[in-house]
Design a protein around this nucleic acid. Structure first.
Lengths: 144, 144
DNA sequence: ATAATATCAGTAGTATAGTACGGAGTCAAG
DNA sequence: CTTGACTCCGTACTATACTACTGATATTAT
């Protein structure tokens, strides 16, 4: 089994060493084993976990949400239902994110194509039309 | 043309009044017109803009990135190429986000289905396998 | 063997994105 | 025509997620 010191894994994933210690403190990364010198030792699983955290953060999840995602595993009969509910909830959330990202993507595609040859001038910002108001649900009279 | 006071638009979109003033300060929302009493007046376009900002934030964009997205419009022949490049760059980024969100989604779907009837115990966290390492590109020997 | 580099723990400081507060002016309902 | 809700501006405070710094060990390269 491969193992890494804190500096190795940090460099591999592209976070800094302090971030790893911080993640340990807030319990999103598990306490690693130590060498006799008290140096932390990480393995492949830690590497994958850190990689997931990094990317999920870029995708807009908070560390708290990421922790929940990482804890989604079927540990026992007792918790299975809970896990299922939480997973279903996350699923809905993620599907909505994908939908809205696709809307933004489509606007960008159009914009790029407009740019190709014609010098069309768009007076108003084209990206404003993309968000499905249902996703957010306006309060009060729906004048939008 | 509909118009709103700061409290109206804030409540409609679900942000608070101070946030609107903050967005004005950092120039992600334009300076609104004022009534004689110096009260701010917002219109439909402002509403759409604020809605977009709110959702884009939830999708993981920073206010800085959102500002760039909102400025993506073809203003003149001169800037068309720039806009195109920036839009293409954003497009790639968004496509990668969608891809990784879909991967996470698939794992969640599997997890939910596993839960349905069988009491399968997954020893390790299933979600760790989802991120395409290419998206992040590990440094050093690719041992993952 | 010794100098450079890495790690340790703890604490303090930073960036982003708000959120709260205070005192004054404005508006609208009874 | 007042009283309660809303808005004004400026400033200060907060939460999240790091990032930097210190002084002491530990490891590694020459």
């Amino acid at each position: 089994m491969e193992h890494y010191k804190v500096g190795d894994i940090a460099e591999k994933v592209g976070v800094n060493v302090e971030t790893l210690r911080y993640y340990e403190k807030i319990k999103i990364m598990p306490k690693p084993k130590r060498m006799e010198s008290r140096y932390r030792i990480y393995d492949e699983l830690d590497l994958k976990r850190l990689l997931f955290i990094k990317r999920a953060k870029e995708l807009g999840f908070t560390l708290k949400e990421i922790k929940e995602l990482l804890n989604l595993k079927i540990e026992s009969t007792a918790t299975c239902g809970d896990v299922k509910h939480l997973a279903e909830h996350k699923l809905t959330d993620i599907e909505e994110r994908i939908k809205d990202l696709k809307s933004i993507k489509n606007v960008l595609v159009k914009l790029v194509n407009q740019c190709v040859c014609e010098e069309l001038s768009t007076d108003e910002c084209p990206i404003l039309e993309v968000i499905d108001p249902k996703t957010i649900s306006l309060k009060g009279g729906d004048t939008i």
